[in-house]
Design a protein around this nucleic acid. Sequence first.
DNA 1: TCTGGGGTCCTAGGACCC
DNA 2: TCTGGGGTCCTAGGACCC
Length: 425
Amino acid sequence: MSNNRIALVDVNNFYVSCERVFDPRLEGRPVVVLSNNDGCVVARSAEAKELGIKTGAPWFQVQGQAKAWGLVARSSNYELYGDMSSRVMEVVGRFGTWQEVYSIDESFVGLVGDPAQLQAAGRDIRAAVMRHVGVPVCVGVASTKTLAKFANRIAKQNPALGGVCALEAMPPGHVEGIQERVPASGLWGVGGKTADRLKMMGIETIAELKAADPAVIRKKFSVVLQRTVMELNGTECIPHVEERVDKQQIMFSRSFSEPVTTVAGMEEVMAVYAQRGAARLNEEGMRASAMTVTAGTSRFAAGEGSFPAATIRFAAPTQDPIVLVRAAVAAIRQSAVTGASYLRAGVLFSGLEPASGAGMLDVFGAGDAQPEVGGVMGEVRNKFGSTAIGIGIGGLAQAPQWSMKRELASPRYTTDWKDLPVVRA
DNA sequence: TCTGGGGTCCTAGGACCC
DNA sequence: TCTGGGGTCCTAGGACCC
Protein backbone atom coordinates (compact mmCIF):
# COMPACT_ATOMS: atom_id res chain seq x y z
CA MET A 1 0.00 0.00 0.00
CA SER A 2 1.38 3.39 -0.96
CA ASN A 3 1.37 6.21 1.54
CA ASN A 4 -0.84 8.50 -0.50
CA ARG A 5 -3.51 9.87 1.79
CA ILE A 6 -6.49 12.20 1.62
CA ALA A 7 -7.00 15.19 3.89
CA LEU A 8 -10.33 16.89 4.39
CA VAL A 9 -9.79 20.51 5.42
CA ASP A 10 -12.76 22.58 6.49
CA VAL A 11 -13.29 25.89 8.23
CA ASN A 12 -14.91 25.80 11.66
CA ASN A 13 -18.27 27.58 11.70
CA PHE A 14 -17.28 29.16 8.40
CA TYR A 15 -19.71 32.08 8.12
CA VAL A 16 -19.28 33.07 11.75
CA SER A 17 -15.50 32.82 11.44
CA CYS A 18 -15.59 35.15 8.41
CA GLU A 19 -17.59 37.71 10.37
CA ARG A 20 -15.11 37.51 13.23
CA VAL A 21 -12.10 38.23 11.05
CA PHE A 22 -13.46 41.72 10.41
CA ASP A 23 -15.13 42.27 13.75
CA PRO A 24 -12.96 40.86 16.53
CA ARG A 25 -15.52 41.97 19.12
CA LEU A 26 -17.45 38.87 18.10
CA GLU A 27 -14.63 36.67 19.39
CA GLY A 28 -15.73 34.59 22.39
CA ARG A 29 -19.35 35.68 22.08
CA PRO A 30 -22.29 33.61 20.83
CA VAL A 31 -22.84 34.55 17.17
CA VAL A 32 -25.30 33.28 14.56
CA VAL A 33 -25.59 34.00 10.85
CA LEU A 34 -29.09 34.10 9.36
CA SER A 35 -30.47 32.92 6.05
CA ASN A 36 -31.94 35.25 3.45
CA ASN A 37 -34.79 37.38 4.75
CA ASP A 38 -33.22 36.81 8.16
CA GLY A 39 -35.46 33.75 8.28
CA CYS A 40 -33.52 31.14 10.18
CA VAL A 41 -30.13 30.30 11.64
CA VAL A 42 -27.66 28.82 9.13
CA ALA A 43 -24.40 29.07 11.07
CA ARG A 44 -23.55 29.15 14.77
CA SER A 45 -20.43 29.83 16.78
CA ALA A 46 -19.41 27.26 19.38
CA GLU A 47 -20.88 29.53 22.06
CA ALA A 48 -24.22 29.67 20.23
CA LYS A 49 -24.24 25.89 19.92
CA GLU A 50 -23.73 25.64 23.64
CA LEU A 51 -26.84 27.76 24.17
CA GLY A 52 -28.77 25.01 22.41
CA ILE A 53 -29.53 27.01 19.27
CA LYS A 54 -30.05 24.59 16.39
CA THR A 55 -29.25 25.01 12.70
CA GLY A 56 -32.44 25.91 10.92
CA ALA A 57 -34.02 27.43 14.02
CA PRO A 58 -36.43 30.23 13.01
CA TRP A 59 -34.88 33.53 14.03
CA PHE A 60 -38.16 34.91 15.36
CA GLN A 61 -38.16 32.12 17.95
CA VAL A 62 -34.61 32.84 19.09
CA GLN A 63 -34.64 36.62 18.87
CA GLY A 64 -36.47 37.11 22.16
CA GLN A 65 -33.61 35.72 24.24
CA ALA A 66 -30.84 37.26 22.15
CA LYS A 67 -30.28 40.23 24.43
CA ALA A 68 -30.24 38.21 27.62
CA TRP A 69 -27.75 35.80 26.08
CA GLY A 70 -25.57 38.50 24.55
CA LEU A 71 -26.22 36.77 21.23
CA VAL A 72 -25.17 38.60 18.06
CA ALA A 73 -26.93 37.89 14.75
CA ARG A 74 -25.70 38.75 11.27
CA SER A 75 -27.50 38.51 7.95
CA SER A 76 -25.64 36.28 5.54
CA ASN A 77 -23.13 38.11 3.40
CA TYR A 78 -22.37 35.68 0.59
CA GLU A 79 -20.10 38.06 -1.25
CA LEU A 80 -17.79 38.15 1.74
CA TYR A 81 -17.94 34.38 2.33
CA GLY A 82 -17.30 33.60 -1.33
CA ASP A 83 -14.24 35.78 -1.39
CA MET A 84 -12.89 34.41 1.90
CA SER A 85 -13.51 30.90 0.58
CA SER A 86 -11.28 31.36 -2.44
CA ARG A 87 -8.52 32.71 -0.21
CA VAL A 88 -8.73 29.68 2.08
CA MET A 89 -8.77 27.29 -0.89
CA GLU A 90 -5.71 28.90 -2.42
CA VAL A 91 -3.69 28.51 0.78
CA VAL A 92 -4.83 24.93 1.43
CA GLY A 93 -4.13 23.95 -2.18
CA ARG A 94 -0.44 24.81 -1.76
CA PHE A 95 -0.04 21.81 0.54
CA GLY A 96 -1.64 19.11 -1.60
CA THR A 97 -0.51 16.96 -4.49
CA TRP A 98 -4.06 17.58 -5.78
CA GLN A 99 -7.06 19.50 -4.50
CA GLU A 100 -10.78 19.11 -4.89
CA VAL A 101 -12.92 21.98 -3.65
CA TYR A 102 -15.97 20.24 -2.26
CA SER A 103 -18.03 23.10 -0.86
CA ILE A 104 -17.68 26.72 0.12
CA ASP A 105 -15.68 25.78 3.23
CA GLU A 106 -14.25 22.33 2.53
CA SER A 107 -11.67 20.81 0.26
CA PHE A 108 -9.99 17.44 -0.13
CA VAL A 109 -6.26 17.49 -0.79
CA GLY A 110 -3.75 14.76 -1.48
CA LEU A 111 -0.97 14.28 1.10
CA VAL A 112 1.94 11.86 1.12
CA GLY A 113 3.83 10.60 4.14
CA ASP A 114 3.95 8.38 7.21
CA PRO A 115 1.49 9.00 10.06
CA ALA A 116 3.77 11.47 11.82
CA GLN A 117 4.38 13.44 8.63
CA LEU A 118 0.65 13.55 7.89
CA GLN A 119 -0.08 14.87 11.35
CA ALA A 120 2.62 17.54 10.88
CA ALA A 121 1.23 18.51 7.46
CA GLY A 122 -2.19 18.99 9.02
CA ARG A 123 -0.73 21.33 11.62
CA ASP A 124 1.09 23.29 8.91
CA ILE A 125 -2.14 23.74 6.93
CA ARG A 126 -3.94 25.00 10.00
CA ALA A 127 -1.23 27.47 10.86
CA ALA A 128 -0.97 28.76 7.30
CA VAL A 129 -4.70 29.40 6.93
CA MET A 130 -4.81 31.14 10.28
CA ARG A 131 -1.84 33.35 9.38
CA HIS A 132 -2.89 34.23 5.83
CA VAL A 133 -6.68 34.35 6.08
CA GLY A 134 -7.43 34.42 9.80
CA VAL A 135 -9.99 31.62 10.10
CA PRO A 136 -9.62 28.34 12.04
CA VAL A 137 -9.72 25.02 10.16
CA CYS A 138 -9.79 21.36 11.13
CA VAL A 139 -7.96 18.65 9.22
CA GLY A 140 -8.80 14.94 8.99
CA VAL A 141 -6.40 12.59 7.18
CA ALA A 142 -7.08 9.00 6.10
CA SER A 143 -6.91 6.61 3.17
CA THR A 144 -10.39 7.35 1.72
CA LYS A 145 -12.68 10.35 1.54
CA THR A 146 -15.25 8.77 3.83
CA LEU A 147 -12.59 8.06 6.45
CA ALA A 148 -11.07 11.54 6.02
CA LYS A 149 -14.49 13.03 6.78
CA PHE A 150 -14.70 10.79 9.83
CA ALA A 151 -11.20 11.80 10.97
CA ASN A 152 -12.12 15.45 10.55
CA ARG A 153 -15.08 14.91 12.85
CA ILE A 154 -12.81 13.40 15.49
CA ALA A 155 -10.51 16.41 15.19
CA LYS A 156 -13.45 18.75 15.74
CA GLN A 157 -14.80 16.93 18.74
CA ASN A 158 -11.54 16.49 20.61
CA PRO A 159 -9.95 19.87 21.31
CA ALA A 160 -6.92 18.05 22.73
CA LEU A 161 -5.99 17.02 19.17
CA GLY A 162 -5.39 20.64 18.20
CA GLY A 163 -7.68 20.48 15.19
CA VAL A 164 -5.79 17.72 13.36
CA CYS A 165 -6.49 13.99 13.23
CA ALA A 166 -4.52 11.64 11.01
CA LEU A 167 -6.40 8.42 11.58
CA GLU A 168 -3.30 6.24 11.45
CA ALA A 169 -1.50 8.38 14.00
CA MET A 170 -4.09 7.60 16.65
CA PRO A 171 -3.24 5.15 19.47
CA PRO A 172 -4.11 1.49 18.69
CA GLY A 173 -7.76 0.65 19.33
CA HIS A 174 -8.81 4.28 19.72
CA VAL A 175 -10.47 4.64 16.32
CA GLU A 176 -12.17 1.27 16.61
CA GLY A 177 -13.55 2.31 19.99
CA ILE A 178 -15.09 5.44 18.52
CA GLN A 179 -16.57 3.49 15.61
CA GLU A 180 -18.24 1.11 18.05
CA ARG A 181 -19.89 4.00 19.88
CA VAL A 182 -20.82 6.45 17.12
CA PRO A 183 -24.05 5.85 15.16
CA ALA A 184 -23.75 5.23 11.43
CA SER A 185 -25.92 8.26 10.81
CA GLY A 186 -22.90 10.40 11.69
CA LEU A 187 -21.17 9.29 8.50
CA TRP A 188 -20.89 11.19 5.26
CA GLY A 189 -23.52 9.76 2.92
CA VAL A 190 -25.77 8.22 5.57
CA GLY A 191 -28.85 10.35 6.14
CA GLY A 192 -31.84 9.89 8.38
CA LYS A 193 -33.87 7.64 6.06
CA THR A 194 -30.99 5.29 5.42
CA ALA A 195 -30.10 5.21 9.12
CA ASP A 196 -33.67 4.17 9.99
CA ARG A 197 -33.62 1.34 7.50
CA LEU A 198 -30.19 0.19 8.67
CA LYS A 199 -31.45 0.10 12.22
CA MET A 200 -34.21 -2.28 11.23
CA MET A 201 -31.49 -4.61 9.96
CA GLY A 202 -29.68 -4.36 13.27
CA ILE A 203 -26.98 -2.00 12.00
CA GLU A 204 -26.61 1.02 14.26
CA THR A 205 -22.95 1.92 14.70
CA ILE A 206 -20.20 2.76 12.26
CA ALA A 207 -18.42 -0.47 13.27
CA GLU A 208 -21.51 -2.52 12.41
CA LEU A 209 -21.86 -0.85 9.02
CA LYS A 210 -18.17 -1.40 8.35
CA ALA A 211 -18.59 -5.12 9.04
CA ALA A 212 -21.66 -5.46 6.79
CA ASP A 213 -21.51 -7.42 3.53
CA PRO A 214 -21.12 -4.87 0.70
CA ALA A 215 -23.05 -7.07 -1.74
CA VAL A 216 -26.01 -7.28 0.61
CA ILE A 217 -25.90 -3.53 1.24
CA ARG A 218 -25.91 -2.87 -2.48
CA LYS A 219 -28.88 -5.14 -3.01
CA LYS A 220 -30.94 -3.72 -0.17
CA PHE A 221 -29.89 -0.07 -0.55
CA SER A 222 -27.79 1.23 -3.40
CA VAL A 223 -24.37 1.44 -4.87
CA VAL A 224 -23.92 4.66 -2.90
CA LEU A 225 -24.11 2.96 0.47
CA GLN A 226 -22.03 0.05 -0.79
CA ARG A 227 -19.26 2.52 -1.54
CA THR A 228 -19.53 3.87 2.00
CA VAL A 229 -18.99 0.37 3.40
CA MET A 230 -15.98 -0.22 1.19
CA GLU A 231 -14.47 3.17 1.97
CA LEU A 232 -14.83 2.45 5.69
CA ASN A 233 -12.68 -0.60 5.05
CA GLY A 234 -10.01 1.44 3.31
CA THR A 235 -10.92 0.86 -0.35
CA GLU A 236 -11.16 4.09 -2.31
CA CYS A 237 -14.42 4.19 -4.28
CA ILE A 238 -15.20 7.87 -4.59
CA PRO A 239 -13.10 9.41 -7.36
CA HIS A 240 -11.33 12.76 -7.16
CA VAL A 241 -12.80 15.51 -9.28
CA GLU A 242 -9.95 17.96 -9.59
CA GLU A 243 -11.24 19.90 -12.54
CA ARG A 244 -14.53 21.45 -11.67
CA VAL A 245 -16.73 19.76 -14.24
CA ASP A 246 -19.39 21.89 -15.87
CA LYS A 247 -22.51 22.25 -13.82
CA GLN A 248 -25.52 20.24 -14.87
CA GLN A 249 -28.03 22.77 -13.61
CA ILE A 250 -28.10 26.42 -12.71
CA MET A 251 -30.75 27.63 -10.32
CA PHE A 252 -31.94 30.92 -8.97
CA SER A 253 -34.44 30.60 -6.15
CA ARG A 254 -35.45 32.90 -3.32
CA SER A 255 -38.19 33.37 -0.81
CA PHE A 256 -39.90 36.76 -0.54
CA SER A 257 -39.96 39.14 2.37
CA GLU A 258 -43.75 39.24 2.08
CA PRO A 259 -46.26 37.01 0.27
CA VAL A 260 -47.26 37.63 -3.34
CA THR A 261 -50.95 36.90 -3.80
CA THR A 262 -51.75 37.85 -7.38
CA VAL A 263 -50.84 36.25 -10.68
CA ALA A 264 -49.71 39.65 -11.92
CA GLY A 265 -47.41 39.88 -8.91
CA MET A 266 -45.93 36.46 -9.69
CA GLU A 267 -45.32 37.57 -13.27
CA GLU A 268 -43.26 40.45 -11.88
CA VAL A 269 -41.32 38.05 -9.69
CA MET A 270 -40.62 35.76 -12.61
CA ALA A 271 -39.49 38.62 -14.81
CA VAL A 272 -36.85 39.49 -12.20
CA TYR A 273 -35.86 35.92 -11.31
CA ALA A 274 -35.49 34.84 -14.94
CA GLN A 275 -33.12 37.77 -15.44
CA ARG A 276 -31.08 36.85 -12.40
CA GLY A 277 -30.89 33.29 -13.69
CA ALA A 278 -29.96 34.50 -17.16
CA ALA A 279 -27.16 36.58 -15.64
CA ARG A 280 -25.82 33.44 -13.98
CA LEU A 281 -25.98 31.50 -17.21
CA ASN A 282 -23.99 34.28 -18.82
CA GLU A 283 -21.39 34.29 -16.03
CA GLU A 284 -20.91 30.53 -16.44
CA GLY A 285 -20.74 30.91 -20.21
CA MET A 286 -23.59 28.47 -20.70
CA ARG A 287 -26.92 28.30 -22.41
CA ALA A 288 -29.89 26.15 -21.48
CA SER A 289 -32.14 23.90 -23.49
CA ALA A 290 -34.81 23.85 -20.81
CA MET A 291 -36.05 26.06 -18.01
CA THR A 292 -38.25 25.03 -15.10
CA VAL A 293 -40.12 27.73 -13.20
CA THR A 294 -41.39 26.93 -9.74
CA ALA A 295 -43.25 28.72 -6.99
CA GLY A 296 -44.57 27.72 -3.61
CA THR A 297 -46.70 28.77 -0.70
CA SER A 298 -45.49 28.32 2.88
CA ARG A 299 -44.71 24.74 3.88
CA PHE A 300 -45.77 25.63 7.39
CA ALA A 301 -49.23 26.96 6.63
CA ALA A 302 -52.28 24.80 7.19
CA GLY A 303 -54.10 23.36 4.19
CA GLU A 304 -53.03 22.21 0.76
CA GLY A 305 -50.75 24.95 -0.46
CA SER A 306 -49.87 25.54 -4.09
CA PHE A 307 -46.60 24.40 -5.67
CA PRO A 308 -46.77 25.08 -9.39
CA ALA A 309 -43.93 23.93 -11.63
CA ALA A 310 -43.66 24.17 -15.37
CA THR A 311 -40.86 23.17 -17.71
CA ILE A 312 -40.25 24.95 -20.99
CA ARG A 313 -38.08 23.34 -23.63
CA PHE A 314 -36.42 25.63 -26.13
CA ALA A 315 -36.14 24.80 -29.82
CA ALA A 316 -32.50 25.87 -29.59
CA PRO A 317 -30.45 26.28 -26.39
CA THR A 318 -30.48 29.89 -25.29
CA GLN A 319 -29.15 32.35 -22.74
CA ASP A 320 -31.05 35.30 -24.16
CA PRO A 321 -32.65 37.11 -21.21
CA ILE A 322 -35.50 38.42 -23.34
CA VAL A 323 -36.48 34.93 -24.45
CA LEU A 324 -36.10 33.56 -20.92
CA VAL A 325 -38.09 36.33 -19.27
CA ARG A 326 -40.91 36.00 -21.79
CA ALA A 327 -41.11 32.23 -21.35
CA ALA A 328 -40.94 32.39 -17.55
CA VAL A 329 -43.67 35.01 -17.31
CA ALA A 330 -45.96 33.06 -19.66
CA ALA A 331 -45.34 29.85 -17.72
CA ILE A 332 -46.16 31.32 -14.32
CA ARG A 333 -49.23 33.05 -15.73
CA GLN A 334 -50.57 29.65 -16.69
CA SER A 335 -49.57 27.72 -13.58
CA ALA A 336 -49.97 30.13 -10.66
CA VAL A 337 -53.23 29.90 -8.75
CA THR A 338 -55.21 33.09 -8.23
CA GLY A 339 -55.46 33.94 -4.55
CA ALA A 340 -52.70 31.64 -3.37
CA SER A 341 -50.22 33.25 -1.01
CA TYR A 342 -46.83 32.58 -2.59
CA LEU A 343 -43.69 32.88 -0.52
CA ARG A 344 -41.02 31.66 -2.88
CA ALA A 345 -40.17 31.15 -6.52
CA GLY A 346 -37.30 29.91 -8.62
CA VAL A 347 -35.98 29.24 -12.09
CA LEU A 348 -33.90 26.16 -12.88
CA PHE A 349 -31.93 25.83 -16.10
CA SER A 350 -31.00 22.37 -17.37
CA GLY A 351 -29.67 20.77 -20.51
CA LEU A 352 -26.71 23.13 -20.34
CA GLU A 353 -24.06 23.52 -23.01
CA PRO A 354 -21.23 26.00 -23.55
CA ALA A 355 -22.42 29.20 -25.15
CA SER A 356 -19.22 29.80 -27.13
CA GLY A 357 -17.67 28.07 -30.10
CA ALA A 358 -19.52 25.75 -32.41
CA GLY A 359 -23.07 26.16 -31.30
CA MET A 360 -26.13 26.88 -33.32
CA LEU A 361 -25.86 27.35 -37.03
CA ASP A 362 -26.00 31.02 -37.76
CA VAL A 363 -28.42 30.60 -40.63
CA PHE A 364 -28.99 34.26 -41.33
CA GLY A 365 -25.45 35.42 -40.77
CA ALA A 366 -26.64 37.85 -38.11
CA GLY A 367 -24.36 36.55 -35.37
CA ASP A 368 -21.54 39.04 -35.80
CA ALA A 369 -23.68 42.06 -36.38
CA GLN A 370 -25.92 41.34 -33.40
CA PRO A 371 -24.01 40.68 -30.19
CA GLU A 372 -25.85 38.57 -27.67
CA VAL A 373 -28.08 40.52 -25.34
CA GLY A 374 -27.02 38.47 -22.31
CA GLY A 375 -23.35 39.19 -22.90
CA VAL A 376 -23.89 42.91 -23.34
CA MET A 377 -25.97 43.10 -20.19
CA GLY A 378 -23.25 41.19 -18.33
CA GLU A 379 -20.65 43.74 -19.46
CA VAL A 380 -22.81 46.64 -18.36
CA ARG A 381 -23.32 45.03 -14.94
CA ASN A 382 -19.59 44.42 -14.56
CA LYS A 383 -18.84 48.04 -15.34
CA PHE A 384 -21.67 49.87 -13.62
CA GLY A 385 -22.96 47.49 -10.98
CA SER A 386 -25.54 44.73 -10.73
CA THR A 387 -28.57 47.03 -10.81
CA ALA A 388 -27.39 49.15 -13.73
CA ILE A 389 -29.43 47.38 -16.40
CA GLY A 390 -32.48 45.15 -16.64
CA ILE A 391 -35.49 44.24 -18.67
CA GLY A 392 -38.92 45.52 -17.65
CA ILE A 393 -39.40 45.54 -13.90
CA GLY A 394 -35.94 44.01 -13.55
CA GLY A 395 -34.55 47.37 -14.67
CA LEU A 396 -36.10 49.36 -11.85
CA ALA A 397 -33.53 50.91 -9.57
CA GLN A 398 -35.78 50.51 -6.55
CA ALA A 399 -36.28 46.95 -5.40
CA PRO A 400 -39.89 45.71 -5.44
CA GLN A 401 -41.84 45.33 -2.21
CA TRP A 402 -41.36 41.55 -1.96
CA SER A 403 -37.55 41.58 -2.34
CA MET A 404 -35.36 39.89 0.16
CA LYS A 405 -34.55 41.53 3.48
CA ARG A 406 -31.07 41.62 4.98
CA GLU A 407 -31.33 43.93 7.90
CA LEU A 408 -28.33 42.77 9.89
CA ALA A 409 -25.78 42.62 7.09
CA SER A 410 -22.10 43.19 7.60
CA PRO A 411 -20.14 45.26 5.06
CA ARG A 412 -18.60 43.65 1.97
CA TYR A 413 -15.16 44.08 3.48
CA THR A 414 -13.21 42.40 0.72
CA THR A 415 -15.25 42.93 -2.44
CA ASP A 416 -16.30 46.58 -2.37
CA TRP A 417 -13.90 49.51 -2.07
CA LYS A 418 -16.46 51.52 -0.13
CA ASP A 419 -16.60 48.80 2.54
CA LEU A 420 -12.87 48.32 2.95
CA PRO A 421 -12.06 48.28 6.66
CA VAL A 422 -9.97 51.18 7.95
CA VAL A 423 -7.07 50.42 10.26
CA ARG A 424 -5.63 53.07 12.54
CA ALA A 425 -2.24 52.54 14.11
C1' DT B 1 -46.52 38.24 11.69
C1' DC B 2 -42.02 35.04 11.11
C1' DT B 3 -39.23 28.79 9.00
C1' DG B 4 -32.59 28.88 3.30
C1' DG B 5 -30.59 28.29 -1.19
C1' DG B 6 -28.33 25.96 -3.49
C1' DG B 7 -26.51 21.47 -5.61
C1' DT B 8 -25.28 16.12 -6.66
C1' DC B 9 -26.03 11.25 -7.81
C1' DC B 10 -28.85 7.17 -8.35
C1' DT B 11 -32.95 4.48 -9.60
C1' DA B 12 -37.16 3.20 -11.70
C1' DG B 13 -40.16 3.48 -15.31
C1' DG B 14 -41.81 4.94 -19.79
C1' DA B 15 -40.99 5.86 -24.68
C1' DC B 16 -38.84 4.44 -28.42
C1' DC B 17 -35.87 1.70 -31.53
C1' DC B 18 -34.22 -2.51 -34.03
C1' DT C 1 -55.69 -15.71 -27.13
C1' DC C 2 -51.39 -14.90 -28.15
C1' DT C 3 -47.90 -11.44 -28.65
C1' DG C 4 -39.14 -11.36 -27.92
C1' DG C 5 -35.19 -9.53 -26.24
C1' DG C 6 -32.24 -6.15 -25.90
C1' DG C 7 -30.76 -1.58 -25.92
C1' DT C 8 -30.79 3.73 -25.24
C1' DC C 9 -32.53 8.03 -23.74
C1' DC C 10 -35.19 10.90 -20.89
C1' DT C 11 -37.68 12.26 -16.77
C1' DA C 12 -39.38 12.31 -12.12
C1' DG C 13 -38.52 11.49 -7.66
C1' DG C 14 -35.76 10.12 -3.67
C1' DA C 15 -31.91 10.70 -0.76
C1' DC C 16 -28.20 13.15 0.55
C1' DC C 17 -24.83 17.04 1.12
C1' DC C 18 -23.35 21.84 2.86
